[in-house]
């Protein structure tokens, strides 16, 4: 490991991507749940959101078509009924419960191995990445697995350890494809985790757009 890598932690870049809206819905929900559970990164994310808001303020305005009719639509439109959202429970905070679509006590689990259950969120792949909720009995070891991108895991209940450390409720663990990833659940409690294999969304167009922005001001 080079010197400059030692000081950097991937969670800071993840928070930056969250703040600027660049994460897949699955990872966006994961980070929102992390922020709801643990206060540690809230101040950093607030500051990053302020920087993005300044960027918005600086953005050269786009022409608005039909300004008057759009205003009229806002003033006169009937109230749209909002979709009923999956309610939060004590384990899964609201932003994530809504993404998963189930409360913890209603999740349609599939047993993967004795002591390990999984729910694969079916719609996650449509918007990039794979997302699973995992329930691991105390002391169980997840089978060694590999994945292409980075796997990001949020602990929702209990805790687990792997080669990189010990993680409790609200903590985020990162596993790159080259890491031997065999998490072991703590002995004293069931462990529930939400794991996302990252496939970041590509949100911007050609490089020329940036050139245009830099020179167009």
């Amino acid at each position: 490991m080079r010197l400059e890598d030692q000081a950097a932690h991937p969670i800071d870049a993840l928070m930056a991507q969250y703040a600027s809206g660049q994460l897949s819905p699955a990872l966006h929900g994961l980070v929102a749940a992390h922020l709801a559970i643990k206060p540690d990164n809230r101040g950093f994310v607030d500051a990053l959101e302020e920087l993005n808001a300044r960027e918005l303020e600086m953005t050269a305005p786009a022409p608005i078509r039909g300004r008057d009719s759009r205003l009229a639509a806002i003033f006169d439109a009937p109230v749209r009924p909002a979709r009923a959202q999956t309610q939060a429970d004590p384990i899964i905070p609201a932003p994530l419960a809504d993404f998963i679509g189930y409360r913890l006590d209603a999740v349609p689990w599939r047993t993967v191995l004795p002591g390990i259950r999984e729910f694969h969120v079916p719609h996650a792949e449509k918007s990039g990445g794979e997302a699973s909720l995992l329930w691991i009995k105390p002391g169980r070891i997840m089978p060694s697995h590999t994945h292409d991108g980075t796997e990001v895991t949020l602990v929702l209940k209990g805790g687990f350890s792997d080669a990189s450390g010990h993680y409790r409720r609200g903590d985020i663990a990162f596993a790159d494809s080259d890491i031997d990833h065999r998490p072991r659940a703590d002995e004293d409690e069931d462990c529930v985790c939400f794991a996302v294999t990252d496939a970041p969304l590509r949100l911007t167009g050609p490089f020329g757009r940036i050139m245009q922005r830099l020179f167009g001001h």
Partner: peptide
């Protein structure tokens, strides 16, 4: 706006989520 856009990315699941539902309001900063 950021959260509304993320919701729209998974539109097949989402009809209309009120962008100010507690879902997306950040918790209190210390």
């Amino acid at each position: 706006a950021r959260n509304r856009r993320i919701d729209i990315l998974r539109r097949d699941k989402v009809d209309f989520v009120d962008p100010l539902e507690p879902t997306h309001e950040p918790s209190e900063t210390p």
